[in-house]
Write a protein that binds this DNA or RNA. Structure first.
Lengths: 207, 207, 207, 207
DNA sequence: AATGAATGAGGGTTCATTCAT
DNA sequence: TATGAATGAACCCTCATTCAT
C-alpha cells in the first residue's frame, strides 16, 4: 500500500521508473494528484496543478503517465485497494458475522475520515471511467456478499440473504461515511458503526 | 411539474419568457438539457449539444439562461422535486411506519427506472454545485427522519432512531436504486423494496 | 477559381458558411494559410500565424476548419486545381501536339512565378497527406499522357510513347519551374519553354 | 562511404568520437536516423525514436550531435554523396555522351530502388535546411552540365546546350526515379533508362 | 426573439534539450 | 562515455460567452 502504483506495464511506452529518484518522483505525483483531484474534481483539476503541488516540472508528469485519464485511473485503483485494506485490516479472525460487519464499517469510517477526497474521486469516476466505477462497487458488494454467505454457513445469519442485501448494507455504509466521516469533523466511528449494526441486528421496529 | 422551471427572477437580467413562443423554446431547452447532461455528464455536455437537440440556434440559449451552470441547477431543482414527488405520491395516508418506507422505496425505484439519468445528474452536481448536492441529500434525509419520528410517536418504531438512521436508510435506498433500477433492465421494484423492508423489520440475524 | 473552397460537406460538422460575412472570413483564412504554409512549411506554420495574417480571432479558424490538416488539404486541392487551370487556359484548340506542350509549360511557368509557394506546399504534402501528393502527380501525368495519345492519333508523335514518357516530361517541367520560375526573379517563360520544347522536337544529339 | 560521417569539427564542442566504442555508437545512430527520418519524416521523427532504434540511451545522442538538425544535415550530406557515387560508378570511361547519360540514370535508378527513403529525406530538406536542398540539386545539375559540355567538346551534342538543359534532364531522371524506382516494386532500370535516352536521342516527334 | 459568426482564455500534450549520476 | 530523469516552451484545439444582424 505504500509502494507507488505504476501505470500498467503494457502498452507502447513503459513508464515504470528505473531509478530510485524516479520512484520518488512518481510517488510525489500520485500524492499530489490525490489532493488536486480531491479538491477540484477531475475536470477542474489540471496537470499543471498536479505538478505544481508535486514540485516537479510540467513535463515530468509525462515521464510517468501518458494522460490525465491514466493517472486518474491509477489513483482510483490505488484508493480502491486502500479502502479494501482499511476494512479488512480492521477485522479479526473468527469474529461473529455481525461483529465482522461492525469492524469493517468502523475501519472504513476511520479511513474515510483521513481520506475525505476518496468520495469525490470515486464518484467522479462515474464520468471519467464508468467501468472502474462499476467495478469498484461490484467488488465491494461481492466482498460483503461473501461475508454474508460465511455467516449463513455458520448459522448466524438469515438464510435468504443475497447480493441485494449486500448492496443495501454497502449503501448504508457509504452514506454514513459521507455524512459522518467526510462532512463532519468529529469521527465517532464506533458510535456510527454501532448504530448501523443495531439495524442489522434487530431492524428498526419497536419490540 | 410540467410547467417549465424558469431561472431565478433575480439577477441582472430577467430571462422569463414573455410570449407563448418563448415558453415553448424554454421548455425545449430544458428537455434537451436533461438528455444532454444525462448522456454526457456536465463537463462533456455542451451548449451547442443542447441547442442542437432542442432545434434552436446557439444564441437562443442565452435568451433564457445566463450560463451553463444556471440551466444545470435548474435541472437539478426540477429532478430533486420530481424524486420527492415520486416517493410521496406512492405513499398513502395512515399507513404503518414500515409500510410507508416500503411504499416510498417502491415509488423511488419506479421513478429511477424511468429516469436513469437522475443519478448521473445529481452525482455530478457534487462537482458543479456542491451546495445543491448537499441540500438534496439533507432534504431527503430530513424527510425520512420526519417519517421515523412519526413512527416513534405512533409507538411503532424504536425510540432511539435519529438522523443517522435516516441516512442509513437513504443509503440503502440509493444503492438499491443504482444497482436494480439504473443498472438493470428489469424493474422488480416490489421485490427489492420488500427485501430492504425485511432488514428494517427484523435485521439480518437468524432468529 | 475565385470562390472559396469549402471543407468537404460531409462529416460530423458541416462548416460551410451560411452568411456573406462567413464567406469573406473563410476566403481570408485560405489566403492567409497559403502565405503561412508557403513561408514556413506545414510544421512550422501555426494556426495562430494563419489567423493573425487573416486578421481574425484564433477561434474563428475552427468555425471553418476542423484541423490544421484539413485546411492544408483544402489548400492543396485549391492549388492543384489552379495549376491545372493555368496550364489548360494557356493552350488553344487544334494546336499541333508539340505546340500544345510548349503552351502548357509556358502557362505553368507563368503561374509558378506568381505562386512561388506552390512548390513548398505541394512538396510538403508528401509528408502531411501522401495520398494527395501522389494524386496530384498522377493526375498531372495522366493529363500529359492523354495529350501524347492525342498527338499519336494525329500522326504527329512517336507511336511508342506511354505513361513513362509523360512522367519524364512532367519532371522536366517541374524542375525547370523550380529553377527558373521559383528560384529566379526574371520569368523568361517563353525562352525556357522553347528550350524544353527543342528537346522534345529533336533530342540533344548533334545532327 | 562506410566510415561514419562525423559532425563538422568546428563549433562549440567537437563531437568526434575518440574511442572505437564511440565510433560504433556514432555509426549506430546514423543508421538508425536514416530509417527513422525515412519512415517518419523530419518533423514526425524523434530523437527518442532514433536512440530506441540504435539501442542507446537518449542522452548518448547528444554526445555525438548537437541537435536534431545537425544529424539530419549529416544524413543529407551522406546520402547526397551516395547518390553521386551511385551514378558515377555506373559510368565507364570514354563512353559516348548519350551512353554516359543512360548509364548514370541506370545507376541512379538502381540506387533509388534500394534506398527509397532518399526522396523523403532530400525533399524534406527543403523545409529543414533549404541551403542544403538547393546545394544538392545545384551540384547534381552542375555535374550533368559538365558532362554535356564534354559531349559538345567531343562533337556529339548540340552546341546550344546549357545549364537549363541539365536541369531538364535532371527533372526527367528524378521523376522517373520517383515513379518507377520508389513507387514501384519492380526495378526495370534499363527499360526506363532506355526510354529516357530515346527522348534525348531523337525527341518525341514522329520521323 | 432568433440567428450564427466571432472571440480568446485555458488546458492537455509533445519533445528537443539539459543535467545529475 | 553512458544513462535516463527533468525541464519548459510551444502549439493545437475546445467551447462558454458575446455580439452584430
Amino acid at each position: 500500500m505504500t509502494t507507488p502504483t505504476p501505470p500498467a506495464d503494457k502498452g507502447p511506452a513503459d513508464k515504470a521508473p528505473r531509478t530510485e529518484r524516479g520512484r520518488r518522483t512518481l510517488r510525489k505525483l500520485l500524492d499530489a494528484a490525490a489532493i488536486e483531484f480531491g479538491e477540484r474534481g477531475f475536470h477542474e483539476a489540471s496537470i499543471t496543478g498536479i505538478t505544481r503541488r508535486a514540485g516537479t516540472a510540467l513535463g515530468s508528469f509525462y515521464t510517468y503517465f501518458n494522460s490525465k485519464d491514466e493517472i486518474f485511473r491509477a489513483l482510483v485503483d490505488d484508493l480502491s485497494g486502500k479502502v479494501r485494506e482499511a476494512a479488512r485490516s480492521a477485522r479479526q479472525q473468527d469474529l461473529p458475522a455481525l461483529e465482522t460487519e461492525r469492524a469493517s464499517l468502523t475501519g472504513f469510517l476511520r479511513f474515510a475520515s483521513e481520506h475525505k477526497e476518496i468520495y469525490r474521486i470515486i464518484d467522479e469516476c462515474e464520468f471519467v471511467d464508468p467501468d472502474s466505477f462499476r467495478l469498484h462497487y461490484r467488488n465491494t458488494a461481492r466482498r460483503i456478499h461473501e461475508r454474508l454467505a460465511e455467516g449463513i454457513r455458520k448459522g448466524e445469519l438469515r438464510e435468504d440473504l443475497g447480493e441485494a442485501h449486500a448492496w443495501a448494507i454497502m449503501g448504508m455504509n457509504v452514506f454514513l461515511g459521507l455524512r459522518y466521516a467526510v462532512w463532519s469533523e468529529d469521527a465517532g466511528a464506533e458510535e456510527v458503526a454501532e448504530l448501523a449494526n443495531s439495524i442489522l441486528r434487530e431492524g428498526i421496529a419497536k419490540r
